[in-house]
Amino acid sequence: MLKKTGKYVLILDDVWDRFCLEEVGIPESSSSNGWKLVLTTRSVHVCKRMGCKDILAIPLSEEEALILFLNKVGPNIVQSASIMPILKLVVNECACLPLTIVVVAGTLKGEDDPCIWRNALKELKERIGMIEGAEAEVIERLKFSFDHIKDEKVKRCFLYCALYPEDFKIEKDDLIECWIDEGFIEEMDKKRNERHGLCLFEKVGRKLFVRKCYQTIQSALCEDA
């Protein structure tokens, strides 16, 4: 049980569900004990059930969202007059959410066919239109990116990363060895296995939300959706 007196702030990050503070040794904050509790959550429902005053995070402006998307999607797309009008509509479907923008832009990076962009826009609208709730909409936008990965090996390798905890530093060589052991990589010799593994590692990091670390790309952090 926290017994420290005086003024201080306790921050709980990324809370997914309601829980009893006293059960984990946290007394209720009040004017008499002089401390405050701050928690972050993607769910307004959790915030209300915890009895907190909710302060919504401000999303990116439309201009900031467009700039971020253009930075991630590649220069060849930025220069395409036929794609830019569709691209702006795709950005609108990302609801100015940074993670969604990065993931969707990564999915469409290098795609210079306007038909592919129109189909992507249509699918995003249909997916969001079929569900209710802000949290479900975010998940559906991220799922859009995963579903559009054409290489089944990349999908399997990414799903394997879900075995690791959030923000766990995954060593590149260890991860590739695991992929080989699981049969995701089936080359005839060790060097070709390693080269194929490096290629898959790059694709997983580039296409999906696994954050790469260090310029030498020796490891990665598994992102929370």
Rank of each mutant, 00 (worst) to 15 (best):
L200P: 01
S80N: 15
V38E: 08
R192A: 15
K72Y: 03
D14Y: 12
L89Q: 13
Y8W: 10
F144E: 05
M1T: 02
L68T: 06
L70C: 12
A57C: 07
E140D: 14
K125R: 08
T216E: 15
E22W: 02
S80K: 10
C222H: 10
D224M: 04
L99D: 09
F201L: 15
Q79P: 01
C157T: 01
A136S: 12
H45P: 05
F201S: 09
Q215L: 12
D173I: 13
E187D: 10
G197H: 12
Y8H: 11
G197W: 14
A134T: 11
K153N: 10
M84V: 15
K143W: 13
H45I: 10
T100K: 03
I149W: 07
E63R: 07
E152V: 09
G51C: 06
G197D: 03
F184S: 04
E140F: 03
D13C: 01
D181I: 06
M50R: 01
K212V: 06
H45L: 05
E63T: 06
L21T: 00
E171A: 08
T100P: 01
I131D: 05
D151F: 11
P98D: 13
L124G: 00
N76K: 12
E23G: 07
R118M: 09
F146Q: 04
E126K: 07
V103F: 10
R42I: 04
C20T: 15
C20Y: 11
D181P: 04
A220M: 07
D174M: 13
I176L: 11
G205Q: 09
P98R: 12
K172P: 15
L39E: 00
T107R: 04
M84K: 09
E28A: 10
V78Q: 14
K191W: 14
T40L: 04
I128F: 03
T41G: 00
L21V: 00
D147Y: 14
N71D: 15
V44P: 05
E23P: 04
V138C: 10
E126G: 03
E202K: 06
I67N: 09
A81D: 10
